[in-house]
Amino acid sequence: MSLAERILAGDVRAAARLMRFIDDGLDCATPELKALYPHTGKAFILGITGPPGAGKSTLTDKIIAAYRQRGKRVAVVAIDPTSPFSGGAILGDRIRMNRHATDEGVFIRSLGTRGHLGGLSRSTVDVVNVFDAMGWDLVIVETVGVGQDEVEIVRNAHTSLVVMVPGLGDDIQAIKAGILEIGDVFVVNKADRPDADRAVRDLATMIEMNHPDEGEWWPSVMRTVAQKGEGIEELVEKIEEHRRFLAESGQLKHFEENKSALRFEELLRDQLFRQVRKRISDSGNLARTIEAIARREQDPYSAVEEIVALHFQK
């Protein structure tokens, strides 16, 4: 039986192994992904992002529990940074979720960013697809602790939670671009801290300044104390509200089209680049061209135009 067949039959080890192949960028993953793709599109994908230390993993743990109570099977992709120096990583998000480790309705997979920027790893979308095809109801993607520019999650998750904590900065932070613009639901976690009211107010002001159009989703600011389990039910209810909104407003179709376009272009870019690079490198052209550019005998713009013309035009 192929890995894909075993995965469709619910085999955890087969899924774990394919995720490994995907993460390591092995070509043998591709036929399996092809076989799984027709079975995707059923899972609800929830992104959880926010700065380091905001409590994303603890919140994820509580959200897992809330959805388990609702009888849903929950998969988690937890992403931690890879050291740019050694290439190694300590993936420790599980520490806060491991009480679910022996629950067969929960599958947690940790991934290192492996040099990829944007808050996800290069493998994330495909790993989510494996979970989706396998029939998991909910796939939670917890990004690395992000700053202001790591917004890749929003194109790949149906609903994006942005988790903040009180006291992160004055209200100028709230008018900056980046993760503050991508949230479908904002969460002020650790809301038992004294300056929580202010954080909620700043976020609410920012949402008002964005003033969504008529018929668009209006993001809410929720309060939680994840450690104590406070505010979780309300948060999950809000997530479900956004999910219903996507379906009823027709935005779900739009989301799927955007996501497909993005994925297609990404793969196209990867493949074209790899093939062209391999050809010019095998022929010795790559080294010659780079040398010529370095010696200012050729400019890089013309060099690329020539290669593109050579490989793609009639």
């Binding site: 050291s83 050694s86 990583a89 520490i95 480790a101 290192g112």
Partner: peptide, 27 residues
């Protein structure tokens, strides 16, 4: 990590069942 490995760390007080499930899910 400094040797370039990916390390999954579970934290304290894990049961053998938790450890084995983690090992399988994380491959």
């Amino acid at each position: 990590r400094d040797a370039g490995f990916e390390v999954i760390y579970t934290g304290l007080r894990q049961t053998p069942e938790q450890i084995v499930t983690t090992a399988l899910q994380e491959d």
